[in-house]
Write a protein that binds this DNA or RNA. Structure first.
Lengths: 209, 209
DNA sequence: GCATTGCGATACTTGACAGTATCGTAATTG
DNA sequence: CAATTACGATACTGTCAAGTATCGCAATGC
Protein backbone atom coordinates (compact mmCIF):
# COMPACT_ATOMS: atom_id res chain seq x y z
CA UNK A 1 0.00 0.00 0.00
CA UNK A 2 3.01 2.24 -0.22
CA UNK A 3 2.02 3.34 -3.70
CA UNK A 4 -1.26 4.39 -5.19
CA UNK A 5 -1.31 2.27 -8.34
CA UNK A 6 -2.74 -1.05 -7.36
CA UNK A 7 -1.61 -4.30 -8.88
CA UNK A 8 -3.05 -7.74 -8.64
CA UNK A 9 -1.02 -9.82 -6.23
CA UNK A 10 1.47 -12.29 -7.67
CA UNK A 11 0.96 -11.31 -11.27
CA UNK A 12 3.74 -9.06 -12.40
CA UNK A 13 4.26 -6.77 -15.31
CA UNK A 14 7.21 -7.21 -17.66
CA UNK A 15 10.01 -4.67 -17.65
CA UNK A 16 11.89 -2.94 -14.91
CA UNK A 17 10.01 -2.97 -11.61
CA UNK A 18 9.11 0.15 -9.68
CA UNK A 19 11.76 1.33 -7.27
CA UNK A 20 10.29 1.08 -3.79
CA UNK A 21 12.77 3.56 -2.42
CA UNK A 22 11.30 6.11 -4.79
CA UNK A 23 7.85 5.36 -3.36
CA UNK A 24 9.05 6.13 0.12
CA UNK A 25 11.16 9.11 -0.89
CA UNK A 26 8.24 10.73 -2.70
CA UNK A 27 5.84 10.42 0.20
CA UNK A 28 8.47 11.56 2.69
CA UNK A 29 9.36 14.59 0.59
CA UNK A 30 5.70 15.42 0.13
CA UNK A 31 5.05 15.32 3.86
CA UNK A 32 8.07 17.47 4.61
CA UNK A 33 7.08 20.07 2.08
CA UNK A 34 3.46 20.09 3.13
CA UNK A 35 4.56 20.87 6.64
CA UNK A 36 7.14 23.42 5.65
CA UNK A 37 5.40 25.49 3.01
CA UNK A 38 1.77 24.43 3.19
CA UNK A 39 -0.50 23.13 0.46
CA UNK A 40 -0.52 26.58 -0.99
CA UNK A 41 3.10 26.60 -2.11
CA UNK A 42 3.47 22.91 -2.51
CA UNK A 43 5.12 22.31 -5.92
CA UNK A 44 5.58 19.08 -7.73
CA UNK A 45 8.99 20.19 -8.95
CA UNK A 46 10.07 20.66 -5.35
CA UNK A 47 8.82 17.23 -4.39
CA UNK A 48 10.80 15.73 -7.24
CA UNK A 49 13.87 17.70 -6.26
CA UNK A 50 13.74 16.81 -2.61
CA UNK A 51 12.98 13.17 -3.28
CA UNK A 52 15.85 13.00 -5.79
CA UNK A 53 13.45 11.76 -8.40
CA UNK A 54 12.21 12.82 -11.83
CA UNK A 55 8.76 14.26 -12.14
CA UNK A 56 7.72 11.42 -14.40
CA UNK A 57 8.44 9.04 -11.54
CA UNK A 58 5.91 10.86 -9.43
CA UNK A 59 3.29 11.07 -12.13
CA UNK A 60 3.72 7.38 -12.87
CA UNK A 61 2.41 6.78 -9.33
CA UNK A 62 -0.01 9.60 -8.74
CA UNK A 63 -2.18 11.07 -11.47
CA UNK A 64 -2.27 14.54 -9.95
CA UNK A 65 -0.96 16.72 -7.20
CA UNK A 66 -4.16 16.32 -5.26
CA UNK A 67 -3.86 12.56 -5.26
CA UNK A 68 -0.29 12.75 -4.06
CA UNK A 69 -1.30 15.01 -1.21
CA UNK A 70 -4.14 12.68 -0.28
CA UNK A 71 -1.85 9.67 -0.35
CA UNK A 72 0.78 11.40 1.75
CA UNK A 73 -1.80 12.27 4.35
CA UNK A 74 -3.23 8.78 4.29
CA UNK A 75 0.22 7.38 5.01
CA UNK A 76 0.10 9.03 8.41
CA UNK A 77 -2.75 6.91 9.62
CA UNK A 78 -1.53 4.57 12.28
CA UNK A 79 -2.94 1.93 14.54
CA UNK A 80 -3.63 2.80 18.14
CA UNK A 81 -3.95 0.12 20.74
CA UNK A 82 -6.22 0.57 23.74
CA UNK A 83 -3.83 0.70 26.71
CA UNK A 84 -4.43 -1.29 29.86
CA UNK A 85 -2.31 -0.03 32.69
CA UNK A 86 -4.73 -1.07 35.38
CA UNK A 87 -5.95 2.40 36.25
CA UNK A 88 -8.09 4.94 34.48
CA UNK A 89 -5.50 7.62 35.15
CA UNK A 90 -2.76 5.47 33.69
CA UNK A 91 -4.75 4.59 30.58
CA UNK A 92 -5.72 8.18 29.89
CA UNK A 93 -2.17 9.37 30.44
CA UNK A 94 -0.86 6.75 28.08
CA UNK A 95 -3.15 7.83 25.26
CA UNK A 96 -2.51 11.49 25.87
CA UNK A 97 1.22 11.03 25.83
CA UNK A 98 0.92 9.24 22.52
CA UNK A 99 -0.98 12.23 21.23
CA UNK A 100 1.69 14.59 22.53
CA UNK A 101 4.28 12.58 20.65
CA UNK A 102 2.32 12.81 17.41
CA UNK A 103 1.80 16.54 17.76
CA UNK A 104 5.47 17.02 18.52
CA UNK A 105 6.68 15.63 15.24
CA UNK A 106 8.81 17.95 13.11
CA UNK A 107 6.26 19.80 11.02
CA UNK A 108 3.12 18.72 12.77
CA UNK A 109 1.80 22.25 13.01
CA UNK A 110 2.17 23.12 9.37
CA UNK A 111 0.88 19.75 8.35
CA UNK A 112 -2.19 19.93 10.52
CA UNK A 113 -2.92 23.46 9.44
CA UNK A 114 -2.78 22.53 5.79
CA UNK A 115 -4.88 19.49 6.43
CA UNK A 116 -7.51 21.44 8.26
CA UNK A 117 -7.64 24.02 5.52
CA UNK A 118 -8.06 21.37 2.88
CA UNK A 119 -10.73 19.57 4.90
CA UNK A 120 -12.90 22.65 4.96
CA UNK A 121 -13.23 22.78 1.22
CA UNK A 122 -13.01 19.11 0.31
CA UNK A 123 -15.61 17.05 2.13
CA UNK A 124 -14.16 13.79 0.82
CA UNK A 125 -10.81 14.56 2.38
CA UNK A 126 -12.49 15.67 5.57
CA UNK A 127 -14.32 12.39 5.86
CA UNK A 128 -11.17 10.42 5.15
CA UNK A 129 -9.19 12.26 7.79
CA UNK A 130 -11.93 12.01 10.37
CA UNK A 131 -12.35 8.32 9.78
CA UNK A 132 -8.76 7.25 9.26
CA UNK A 133 -6.93 9.67 11.44
CA UNK A 134 -9.15 10.63 14.25
CA UNK A 135 -11.63 7.85 14.76
CA UNK A 136 -9.14 5.26 15.97
CA UNK A 137 -7.71 7.55 18.63
CA UNK A 138 -11.18 8.64 19.58
CA UNK A 139 -12.44 5.11 19.93
CA UNK A 140 -9.51 4.21 22.13
CA UNK A 141 -10.26 7.14 24.44
CA UNK A 142 -13.90 6.18 24.42
CA UNK A 143 -13.11 2.65 25.52
CA UNK A 144 -10.85 3.89 28.30
CA UNK A 145 -13.54 6.24 29.55
CA UNK A 146 -16.12 3.47 29.48
CA UNK A 147 -13.86 1.33 31.60
CA UNK A 148 -13.36 4.29 33.91
CA UNK A 149 -17.09 4.45 34.42
CA UNK A 150 -17.27 0.70 35.07
CA UNK A 151 -14.48 1.04 37.61
CA UNK A 152 -16.31 3.84 39.35
CA UNK A 153 -13.60 6.39 38.57
CA UNK A 154 -15.84 8.42 36.31
CA UNK A 155 -19.46 9.47 36.59
CA UNK A 156 -21.90 7.33 34.66
CA UNK A 157 -23.81 10.17 33.10
CA UNK A 158 -20.83 12.13 31.76
CA UNK A 159 -20.99 13.93 28.43
CA UNK A 160 -18.78 11.69 26.36
CA UNK A 161 -18.40 14.03 23.41
CA UNK A 162 -17.42 16.83 25.74
CA UNK A 163 -14.87 14.64 27.48
CA UNK A 164 -13.32 13.60 24.18
CA UNK A 165 -13.12 17.17 22.93
CA UNK A 166 -11.62 18.39 26.19
CA UNK A 167 -8.99 15.70 25.91
CA UNK A 168 -8.15 16.52 22.30
CA UNK A 169 -8.94 20.18 21.96
CA UNK A 170 -6.25 21.79 24.09
CA UNK A 171 -3.39 19.98 22.33
CA UNK A 172 -4.76 20.99 19.00
CA UNK A 173 -5.30 24.54 20.15
CA UNK A 174 -1.74 24.90 21.35
CA UNK A 175 -0.38 23.39 18.18
CA UNK A 176 -2.20 25.72 15.84
CA UNK A 177 -3.03 28.84 17.78
CA UNK A 178 -1.41 29.69 21.05
CA UNK A 179 1.89 28.01 20.31
CA UNK A 180 2.10 26.91 23.94
CA UNK A 181 4.14 23.88 24.98
CA UNK A 182 2.80 20.46 24.05
CA UNK A 183 4.28 18.25 26.68
CA UNK A 184 3.64 15.88 29.54
CA UNK A 185 2.46 18.65 31.79
CA UNK A 186 -0.32 19.50 29.36
CA UNK A 187 -1.25 15.85 28.91
CA UNK A 188 -1.33 15.13 32.63
CA UNK A 189 -3.10 18.38 33.43
CA UNK A 190 -5.92 17.57 31.07
CA UNK A 191 -6.21 14.07 32.45
CA UNK A 192 -6.41 15.32 36.03
CA UNK A 193 -9.05 17.79 35.01
CA UNK A 194 -11.14 15.07 33.44
CA UNK A 195 -10.73 12.78 36.44
CA UNK A 196 -11.72 15.51 38.87
CA UNK A 197 -14.39 17.15 36.76
CA UNK A 198 -16.04 13.93 35.64
CA UNK A 199 -15.26 11.91 38.73
CA UNK A 200 -18.07 10.39 40.77
CA UNK A 201 -19.66 12.82 43.21
CA UNK A 202 -17.63 13.09 46.37
CA UNK A 203 -18.40 11.42 49.69
CA UNK A 204 -18.51 7.87 48.32
CA UNK A 205 -14.87 7.81 47.36
CA UNK A 206 -13.87 4.16 47.85
CA UNK A 207 -10.62 4.52 49.72
CA UNK A 208 -11.51 7.69 51.61
CA UNK A 209 -13.47 7.84 54.85
CA UNK B 1 -9.36 52.49 9.67
CA UNK B 2 -11.70 50.93 7.17
CA UNK B 3 -9.09 51.16 4.45
CA UNK B 4 -5.42 50.42 4.30
CA UNK B 5 -4.11 53.59 2.69
CA UNK B 6 -3.55 55.98 5.52
CA UNK B 7 -4.12 59.66 5.21
CA UNK B 8 -3.24 62.47 7.55
CA UNK B 9 -6.34 63.61 9.41
CA UNK B 10 -8.06 66.75 8.19
CA UNK B 11 -5.84 67.24 5.17
CA UNK B 12 -7.61 66.09 2.09
CA UNK B 13 -6.57 65.32 -1.45
CA UNK B 14 -8.12 67.03 -4.42
CA UNK B 15 -10.42 65.14 -6.73
CA UNK B 16 -13.20 62.69 -6.12
CA UNK B 17 -13.07 61.11 -2.68
CA UNK B 18 -12.92 57.38 -2.09
CA UNK B 19 -16.25 55.64 -1.89
CA UNK B 20 -16.58 54.26 1.62
CA UNK B 21 -19.18 51.75 0.55
CA UNK B 22 -16.57 50.25 -1.74
CA UNK B 23 -14.23 49.92 1.25
CA UNK B 24 -16.83 47.95 3.14
CA UNK B 25 -17.95 45.90 0.16
CA UNK B 26 -14.41 44.83 -0.62
CA UNK B 27 -13.64 43.65 2.89
CA UNK B 28 -17.01 41.91 3.19
CA UNK B 29 -16.56 40.12 -0.12
CA UNK B 30 -13.04 39.12 0.82
CA UNK B 31 -14.18 37.63 4.11
CA UNK B 32 -16.99 35.72 2.45
CA UNK B 33 -14.73 34.28 -0.18
CA UNK B 34 -12.00 33.41 2.29
CA UNK B 35 -14.53 31.41 4.25
CA UNK B 36 -16.12 29.78 1.24
CA UNK B 37 -13.19 28.77 -0.91
CA UNK B 38 -10.14 29.24 1.28
CA UNK B 39 -7.03 31.28 0.69
CA UNK B 40 -5.97 28.76 -1.87
CA UNK B 41 -8.66 29.60 -4.39
CA UNK B 42 -9.15 33.15 -3.36
CA UNK B 43 -9.11 35.28 -6.55
CA UNK B 44 -8.97 39.00 -6.84
CA UNK B 45 -11.31 38.90 -9.82
CA UNK B 46 -13.89 37.14 -7.68
CA UNK B 47 -13.55 39.69 -4.93
CA UNK B 48 -14.11 42.46 -7.44
CA UNK B 49 -17.09 40.64 -8.89
CA UNK B 50 -18.76 39.95 -5.57
CA UNK B 51 -18.09 43.43 -4.24
CA UNK B 52 -19.47 44.93 -7.45
CA UNK B 53 -16.27 46.82 -7.92
CA UNK B 54 -13.50 47.13 -10.49
CA UNK B 55 -10.16 45.51 -9.77
CA UNK B 56 -8.49 48.91 -9.90
CA UNK B 57 -10.65 49.98 -7.00
CA UNK B 58 -9.24 47.17 -4.94
CA UNK B 59 -5.65 47.76 -5.96
CA UNK B 60 -6.03 51.45 -5.22
CA UNK B 61 -6.56 50.40 -1.59
CA UNK B 62 -4.44 47.31 -1.19
CA UNK B 63 -1.17 46.83 -3.00
CA UNK B 64 -1.45 43.07 -3.18
CA UNK B 65 -3.68 40.13 -2.50
CA UNK B 66 -1.77 39.32 0.66
CA UNK B 67 -2.36 42.78 2.07
CA UNK B 68 -6.07 42.54 1.32
CA UNK B 69 -6.28 39.22 3.10
CA UNK B 70 -4.41 40.62 6.07
CA UNK B 71 -6.67 43.66 6.23
CA UNK B 72 -9.81 41.56 5.98
CA UNK B 73 -8.65 39.42 8.85
CA UNK B 74 -7.67 42.46 10.88
CA UNK B 75 -11.18 43.83 10.46
CA UNK B 76 -12.47 40.94 12.53
CA UNK B 77 -10.69 42.09 15.65
CA UNK B 78 -13.24 43.25 18.15
CA UNK B 79 -13.24 44.60 21.62
CA UNK B 80 -14.21 42.28 24.42
CA UNK B 81 -15.39 43.63 27.74
CA UNK B 82 -14.67 41.76 30.94
CA UNK B 83 -18.09 40.68 32.18
CA UNK B 84 -19.16 41.14 35.77
CA UNK B 85 -22.20 39.07 36.55
CA UNK B 86 -21.37 38.68 40.19
CA UNK B 87 -20.32 35.04 40.04
CA UNK B 88 -17.36 33.23 38.54
CA UNK B 89 -19.69 30.80 36.84
CA UNK B 90 -21.70 33.63 35.32
CA UNK B 91 -18.63 35.48 34.10
CA UNK B 92 -17.11 32.41 32.51
CA UNK B 93 -20.37 31.46 30.87
CA UNK B 94 -20.76 34.94 29.49
CA UNK B 95 -17.36 34.87 27.81
CA UNK B 96 -17.83 31.36 26.54
CA UNK B 97 -21.17 32.18 25.02
CA UNK B 98 -19.59 35.11 23.24
CA UNK B 99 -17.03 32.73 21.85
CA UNK B 100 -19.75 30.32 20.75
CA UNK B 101 -21.42 33.17 18.89
CA UNK B 102 -18.19 34.09 17.10
CA UNK B 103 -17.51 30.50 16.11
CA UNK B 104 -21.06 30.14 14.85
CA UNK B 105 -20.78 32.86 12.26
CA UNK B 106 -21.49 31.86 8.66
CA UNK B 107 -18.10 30.75 7.41
CA UNK B 108 -16.21 30.69 10.67
CA UNK B 109 -14.80 27.25 9.99
CA UNK B 110 -13.39 27.99 6.57
CA UNK B 111 -12.13 31.32 7.72
CA UNK B 112 -10.38 29.97 10.76
CA UNK B 113 -8.88 27.13 8.78
CA UNK B 114 -7.45 29.47 6.20
CA UNK B 115 -6.19 31.76 8.89
CA UNK B 116 -4.47 28.97 10.73
CA UNK B 117 -2.88 27.75 7.56
CA UNK B 118 -1.58 31.18 6.73
CA UNK B 119 -0.30 31.70 10.27
CA UNK B 120 1.91 28.66 10.03
CA UNK B 121 3.89 30.06 7.17
CA UNK B 122 3.76 33.77 7.83
CA UNK B 123 5.05 34.62 11.27
CA UNK B 124 4.02 38.25 10.91
CA UNK B 125 0.41 37.28 10.33
CA UNK B 126 0.58 34.79 13.16
CA UNK B 127 1.76 37.46 15.56
CA UNK B 128 -0.92 39.87 14.39
CA UNK B 129 -3.68 37.32 14.85
CA UNK B 130 -2.43 36.21 18.22
CA UNK B 131 -2.16 39.77 19.44
CA UNK B 132 -5.24 41.30 17.87
CA UNK B 133 -7.61 38.41 17.79
CA UNK B 134 -6.80 36.17 20.63
CA UNK B 135 -5.10 38.25 23.26
CA UNK B 136 -8.11 40.38 24.16
CA UNK B 137 -10.35 37.38 24.70
CA UNK B 138 -7.59 35.63 26.57
CA UNK B 139 -6.97 38.57 28.84
CA UNK B 140 -10.66 38.79 29.66
CA UNK B 141 -10.73 35.13 30.62
CA UNK B 142 -7.58 35.64 32.63
CA UNK B 143 -9.12 38.46 34.59
CA UNK B 144 -12.26 36.44 35.30
CA UNK B 145 -10.18 33.52 36.52
CA UNK B 146 -8.15 35.80 38.75
CA UNK B 147 -11.30 37.12 40.30
CA UNK B 148 -12.51 33.54 40.73
CA UNK B 149 -9.38 32.81 42.73
CA UNK B 150 -9.90 35.92 44.84
CA UNK B 151 -13.48 34.87 45.50
CA UNK B 152 -12.36 31.43 46.56
CA UNK B 153 -14.16 29.72 43.68
CA UNK B 154 -10.96 28.57 42.04
CA UNK B 155 -7.77 27.12 43.47
CA UNK B 156 -4.95 29.60 43.92
CA UNK B 157 -2.27 27.46 42.36
CA UNK B 158 -4.11 26.52 39.16
CA UNK B 159 -2.30 26.22 35.85
CA UNK B 160 -3.56 29.35 34.15
CA UNK B 161 -2.35 28.45 30.66
CA UNK B 162 -3.98 25.07 30.93
CA UNK B 163 -7.25 26.60 32.08
CA UNK B 164 -7.24 29.04 29.17
CA UNK B 165 -6.51 26.32 26.64
CA UNK B 166 -9.17 24.04 28.07
CA UNK B 167 -11.66 26.86 27.76
CA UNK B 168 -10.70 27.69 24.18
CA UNK B 169 -9.47 24.40 22.76
CA UNK B 170 -12.66 22.36 22.62
CA UNK B 171 -14.59 25.00 20.68
CA UNK B 172 -11.78 25.29 18.21
CA UNK B 173 -11.47 21.54 17.93
CA UNK B 174 -15.13 21.09 17.13
CA UNK B 175 -15.07 23.90 14.63
CA UNK B 176 -12.16 22.56 12.63
CA UNK B 177 -11.97 18.85 13.28
CA UNK B 178 -14.78 16.90 14.82
CA UNK B 179 -17.57 19.05 13.45
CA UNK B 180 -19.49 18.60 16.68
CA UNK B 181 -22.07 21.14 17.85
CA UNK B 182 -20.82 24.48 19.07
CA UNK B 183 -23.54 25.57 21.43
CA UNK B 184 -24.49 26.49 24.94
CA UNK B 185 -24.14 22.94 26.12
CA UNK B 186 -20.52 22.89 25.10
CA UNK B 187 -19.85 26.29 26.62
CA UNK B 188 -21.52 25.43 29.92
CA UNK B 189 -19.98 21.98 30.03
CA UNK B 190 -16.49 23.38 29.74
CA UNK B 191 -17.21 25.99 32.40
CA UNK B 192 -18.51 23.36 34.84
CA UNK B 193 -15.45 21.27 34.19
CA UNK B 194 -13.17 24.17 34.99
CA UNK B 195 -15.11 25.07 38.11
CA UNK B 196 -15.04 21.51 39.38
CA UNK B 197 -11.56 20.60 38.23
CA UNK B 198 -9.91 23.80 39.36
CA UNK B 199 -12.20 24.44 42.32
CA UNK B 200 -10.77 24.69 45.80
CA UNK B 201 -10.04 21.28 47.36
CA UNK B 202 -13.14 19.61 48.74
CA UNK B 203 -14.15 19.20 52.35
CA UNK B 204 -14.52 22.93 52.81
CA UNK B 205 -17.26 23.12 50.22
CA UNK B 206 -19.57 25.80 51.65
CA UNK B 207 -22.96 24.22 51.11
CA UNK B 208 -22.05 20.50 51.13
CA UNK B 209 -21.69 18.40 54.26
C1' DG C 1 -14.49 75.43 -16.59
C1' DC C 2 -10.38 72.84 -15.33
C1' DA C 3 -7.42 69.84 -12.83
C1' DT C 4 -7.42 65.97 -10.10
C1' DT C 5 -8.77 61.75 -8.29
C1' DG C 6 -12.09 57.79 -8.03
C1' DC C 7 -15.32 54.78 -10.34
C1' DG C 8 -16.54 50.10 -13.06
C1' DA C 9 -15.21 47.60 -16.99
C1' DT C 10 -12.27 45.35 -19.93
C1' DA C 11 -8.11 44.15 -22.21
C1' DC C 12 -3.44 43.10 -21.68
C1' DT C 13 1.15 41.40 -19.85
C1' DT C 14 3.61 38.32 -17.31
C1' DG C 15 5.11 34.81 -14.29
C1' DA C 16 4.27 30.55 -12.06
C1' DC C 17 3.36 25.97 -12.20
C1' DA C 18 0.69 21.46 -13.41
C1' DG C 19 1.13 18.14 -16.43
C1' DT C 20 3.33 16.01 -20.85
C1' DA C 21 6.88 14.57 -23.94
C1' DT C 22 11.31 13.08 -24.93
C1' DC C 23 16.07 11.37 -24.24
C1' DG C 24 19.56 8.22 -22.96
C1' DT C 25 19.99 4.65 -19.73
C1' DA C 26 18.98 0.73 -16.32
C1' DA C 27 16.52 -3.35 -14.75
C1' DT C 28 13.66 -6.91 -15.59
C1' DT C 29 11.32 -11.26 -18.39
C1' DG C 30 11.49 -14.57 -21.97
C1' DC D 1 19.43 -10.98 -27.55
C1' DA D 2 14.62 -8.29 -27.89
C1' DA D 3 10.80 -6.36 -25.66
C1' DT D 4 9.08 -3.86 -21.99
C1' DT D 5 8.87 -0.87 -18.28
C1' DA D 6 11.28 2.27 -14.93
C1' DC D 7 14.65 5.71 -14.00
C1' DG D 8 16.45 10.96 -13.67
C1' DA D 9 16.78 14.96 -16.33
C1' DT D 10 15.18 18.50 -18.99
C1' DA D 11 12.48 20.91 -22.21
C1' DC D 12 8.01 22.03 -23.57
C1' DT D 13 2.91 23.34 -23.51
C1' DG D 14 -1.09 25.27 -21.69
C1' DT D 15 -3.64 27.37 -18.26
C1' DC D 16 -4.62 30.33 -14.64
C1' DA D 17 -4.47 34.40 -12.12
C1' DA D 18 -1.89 38.58 -10.18
C1' DG D 19 -1.11 42.86 -11.32
C1' DT D 20 -1.17 46.88 -14.89
C1' DA D 21 -3.03 49.89 -18.33
C1' DT D 22 -6.64 52.18 -20.47
C1' DC D 23 -11.35 53.94 -21.39
C1' DG D 24 -15.30 56.78 -20.66
C1' DC D 25 -17.44 58.80 -16.95
C1' DA D 26 -18.47 60.84 -12.07
C1' DA D 27 -17.40 63.67 -8.08
C1' DT D 28 -14.80 66.86 -5.81
C1' DG D 29 -11.88 71.57 -5.06
C1' DC D 30 -10.37 75.86 -7.08
Amino acid sequence: MSSETSQVEGQRRPGRPRDERADAAIVAAALELLGEVGVHRFRMDDVAGRAGVGKATIYRRYPSKERLVAAAVASLVSEIAVPDTGSTRGDLRSLMRDAVAVYSRPHAGGLMAGLVEAMCHEPALAAAVREGFLATRRRALERVIERGVERGDLAAGLDLQLALDVLGGPLFYRLLITGGPIDGQLADGVVELILTGFGVPRGNHPKGA
